[in-house]
Design a protein around this nucleic acid. Structure first.
Lengths: 331, 331
DNA sequence: TTGAAAGCGCTAACAC
DNA sequence: GTGTTAGCGCTTTCAA
């Protein structure tokens, strides 16, 4: 086949097939009445000419797209990779087209504004927000224009839907276990709110579950081994466990402990990492699949005109018990 | 601020600001001559009205976008997550806008065609292809329309650029080590070509590097523990090492070995997984960053009109020596 | 420095 | 069933 010409328009196809532009469109899109014979001829010509419809023109003329915008946090973290993958899968099954913009951990929020404008500028039919970092206030002004569903994090606004993880419950799961194993002084290691909303909230959830336990809380920045030094110092001072708000951080702690020739109980959060089992991590397996599926199902329903009042749901994962959470006595 | 109206057009902004539509456009885009006073007034009005430019209209009128399309393999695999993340980062630095479509492991290639059409339909200014699965023949027809850069895999066509991994070299790195440790009969575990071009090519590279070694080659499908049974059987029959074309597969093998209470040397490929070090994996750390940066730099150059003849480059990673590759004698 | 006008490629009534 | 027509919202000459 010869090289395609992206410059080929329906006009060209129509002329070549000896029909009018609108007939060609009808044939190509399969809408309206069309003679079977015409349709095949037009399709044949389109294929021969290598016609690729100009989406900008189509969207403009049609007054909007059927596309759903996805705001995603940087997929370097396997948790977001897994979430992304599952959302894509669910969208495919639901026959939704997705366009994705990613957002790093950007304190100033410039990327968020940028990404949001990109999506809104495309006149997406709906918005899926899978980044904890985007504040509710930033989203809310658009809630009346476009249905918005948040995935993986709770949502204060009652104009935005949410399929969140039940982090409070997860925190209690972990905390109960830690207490049951006799720990009475622990380190809680989580990002500050600006770096990662999710990790911050998780650390809070842990703290809430740890009544009666003495807590050294360490806030970290973005770097994975941020705060690890402080955590080890607390261990030296008598803490018997280091509870981390993410598995990546737990790995950093394990690394540091090994390097220092020390031992200490640890827990993490996510449970997504391939190899959690082999590493023996104690962690919470976050219900990525459930939240992703529910989020996509919800946006699909909203697009279909099933207009519920925004619903906020929370999904529960499970505790993964590994070797890293040893009893307090073991020291 | 009141709720934004996505229905707001330049027309509305212009009227409200008391200027013509073209003046408003000029003010907003900062092109052409415009009185400073007018520009600020228009901008002020636009902000007040919550004007979000319709990208479809803009692209159509301007006759194309400045956006670069990225075709990515499903980010569930951390390697693709890392690649994605790095490409996004580099694009941000180079001030390129990216729109991403993802493609699963889809034998029929329907997703590929779909994704490609989406991107081409948007009239992207360039194409970044970070999926081994997309065949050269599928891309080539468009090479004259739009610059195409492949990232992470080699490219037979001389009309498409490539910033690939030097898998032949990587294979030799691993193979040499395996031989040096005395292995004379090994299993090579890699996907069949349809499931993963990359894994298949890697298995080939391993085999090429293993002159004088007896090889049981096992081809697998997509499931991570596919072929693991066959590999263990070969170990029973006398193979002293299992060489895997990806770390995920290596993990599956380690899991199976542990479950069976057996021991055997293993190697993997990727080295991206957080925790490779703690797991003690022996693997090749693939140069994701270098390839991503180079790919983005290349497409940026092409967009700037720096028209080189397509260049095919290969980037080299390094051997990561862990505990999993034991000497042959150890059995 | 600003405005008027001519489309970009496609869709969707509405006639024929 | 098919053709005609009127835009969608924006950019961009070209005059004023």
């Amino acid at each position: 086949m010869a090289d395609r010409q992206l410059g080929v328009t329906v006009e060209d196809v129509a002329r070549e097939a000896g029909v009018s532009r609108s007939t060609a469109t009808r044939a190509l899109r399969g809408h309206g009445r069309i003679a079977e014979e015409t349709r095949t001829r037009v399709e044949e010509v389109a294929a021969r000419l290598g016609y690729v419809p100009n989406l900008a023109a189509a969207d403009l003329a049609a007054g909007g797209t059927g596309v759903v915008g996805l705001m995603l946090r940087d997929a370097a973290n396997p948790v977001y990779g897994a979430l992304f993958s599952r959302i894509e899968l669910a969208a495919r099954d639901a026959d939704l087209d997705l366009v994705t913009v990613t957002i790093g951990a950007d304190p100033a929020g410039a990327q968020q504004v940028q990404g949001l404008r990109r999506l809104l500028g495309m006149r997406v039919a709906g918005l899926l927000v899978a980044t904890g970092g985007v504040e509710s206030a930033r989203l809310e002004p658009f809630a009346s224009e476009v249905p918005i569903v948040r995935i993986g994090r709770d949502e204060p606004s009652d104009r935005i839907h949410a399929e969140a993880y039940d982090e409070a419950w997860h925190g209690r799961l972990l905390a109960d276990r830690v207490r049951a194993l006799g720990h009475r002084r622990v380190v809680v290691l989580g990002a500050d709110a600006a770096t990662s909303y999710g990790e911050h909230a998780r650390a809070d959830a842990l703290v809430d579950g740890l009544e009666g336990v003495r807590i050294d809380r360490v806030a970290t920045g973005a770097a994975p081994d941020d705060g690890v030094g402080a955590a080890l110092a607390a261990v030296d001072a008598g803490a018997t466990a280091v509870l981390c708000a993410s598995d990546t951080r737990q790995l950093a702690v394990l690394r540091a402990l090994a390097a220092a020739g020390r031992a200490c109980a640890t827990t993490g959060w996510d449970g997504i990492l391939p190899g959690v089992d082999l590493l023996g991590l104690t962690t919470v397996r976050v219900p990525v699949e459930a939240a992703a599926d529910a989020g996509v199902a919800r946006i699909a329903a909203l697009l279909d005109g099933v207009v519920d009042a925004p619903i906020h749901r929370r999904w529960r994962g499970e505790l993964l018990v590994g070797r890293t959470l040893t009893p307090a006595e073991d020291r």
